[in-house]
Design a protein around this nucleic acid. Structure first.
Lengths: 236, 236
DNA sequence: GCCTATCTGTGCGACATCACACAAAATGAA
DNA sequence: TTCATTTTGTGTGATGTCGCACAGATAGGC
């Protein structure tokens, strides 16, 4: 399979958009990795050894409070990369990165990423634009957390996940969704039931199916749309 | 006053930390600006013409909801810069930047900033590290908004402001603070009263004085400390 | 087929915040 | 001074979420 890596990198949009020349430099160092739901990609404060380009997996950035509570800060799929501090200059960050949906990623050693970033070419531009998009996602999460109801937040979260998912089924218990959203499991149960009764989703023992995406888009607050528009503007 | 600009740039920490050579290139294009409370530095989606390096002013990034509600996403003083999308590559952002505390700033035309950024030298490193710090502030705002009480959020906000302020007096009505925090004015009144009774602050008709900074630091949630530690780690 | 662990549903009292209404106090302009 | 405006204080009822407890329901291992 001489072009297996090319095929794989083609399925991470950041990598796929790079010129041939850059691809050729990076591909020898790109290594496929498989992740399962719940795998910890890294821990707060840890020194990063690689950046991860999701291909079919979805990775959540979470902040874990001292008392054990948690809340999601941002989510990344094959439109982006995890390991921002490696090129922004901080090397570490105070968040945990966990697999929200199992699947594959490509990882690149820190040094190779940094060398290519310092060339100031297309990879640098792509990484910075992606980071700008992620900043918007995080910002809007802050706004949504403050101003909108749990149900609106759940809709936003479902749509952000769906956008990064292949297919319509998300493997995720209500307990886990509650950890992501920073709310109680019971609250997720109530909201999810309402969404199910409205015919927007169906769920059962750790699986959620998006049934009526359009309906969800009508139910969600403007926060989702703001993020969506920025991602499309910056990453296409 | 041959060295007036040097003096001014020395009071923005980002600029002050640059090597002489970079300073010399930028200084001819740096222009001092004065801002008053409430001035709009820019509107969501507007094309930025300059980046702003606060010297004595404080600038808030707010998201304005369609229904008129608002919430603060981040705050920047003389440790940083406003206009991130100009070097990250997006050119615009969906937020409003307003003056939270009047004072001066230095502005630099977009082109000069971008040219220097592309050189890949110290300015690029400094801007990226600052952006990484701001990402942490935004992230932690999201977490705090979801998991902590209005009173904890108010403490966090007061401390973030105090860190960026010269002196202990903040010119700000409770109404405005409520807009920043994305809560009701009455809620701010109650929390502020409790903080005043505890001897941590004093306020009166649009002015807030930080009386017991240590007390505030004991009352605040971990979110403030996480952000503080990241700023010190990344920007010193 | 049974049993245990996991996942989801529900009830209840507590609490934080909301929306709205209006009072009290301070300020500034006429 | 007087009066209108701004800022802050307070009350009331509604709502959303929390914390806790526990009851069904389902899946998977034995």
């Amino acid at each position: 399979m001489p072009d297996s890596k090319a095929t794989q990198s083609a399925s991470n949009h950041l990598l796929a958009a790079l010129p041939e020349e850059v691809c050729r430099r990076l591909e020898p160092s790109l290594e496929p990795v498989d992740f399962n739901l719940g795998d910890v990609v890294y821990e707060p404060g840890a020194r990063l050894q690689h950046v991860y380009f999701p291909v079919t997996c979805i990775i959540s950035l979470l902040y874990m409070m001292e008392n054990g509570a948690s809340a999601e800060i941002g989510v990344t799929g094959n439109e982006g990369v995890v390991g921002i501090p490696l090129y922004m200059g901080g090397d570490t960050m105070p968040n945990r990165a966990v697999i929200q949906s199992s699947g594959s990623a490509l990882r690149l050693p820190a040094k190779e990423l940094q060398d290519e970033f310092r060339r100031g070419g297309e990879l640098q531009l792509a990484l910075l634009r992606f980071t700008q998009a992620l900043i918007t996602q995080m910002s809007q999460t802050a706004v949504c957390n403050q101003l909108h109801t749990l149900e609106q937040q759940l809709c936003r979260w479902l749509l952000l996940s769906h956008d990064r998912l292949q297919g319509d089924e998300l493997v995720m218990t209500q307990e886990l969704m509650a950890n992501m959203l920073g709310v109680r499991r019971e609250g997720v149960t109530l909201s999810a039931r309402r969404l199910q009764r409205a015919g927007l989703i169906r769920y059962n023992r750790g699986k959620v199916n998006i049934i009526d995406r359009k309906g969800l888009e009508e139910a969600v607050c403007e926060c989702y749309r703001v993020v969506k528009v920025e991602y499309e503007r910056l990453l296409h």
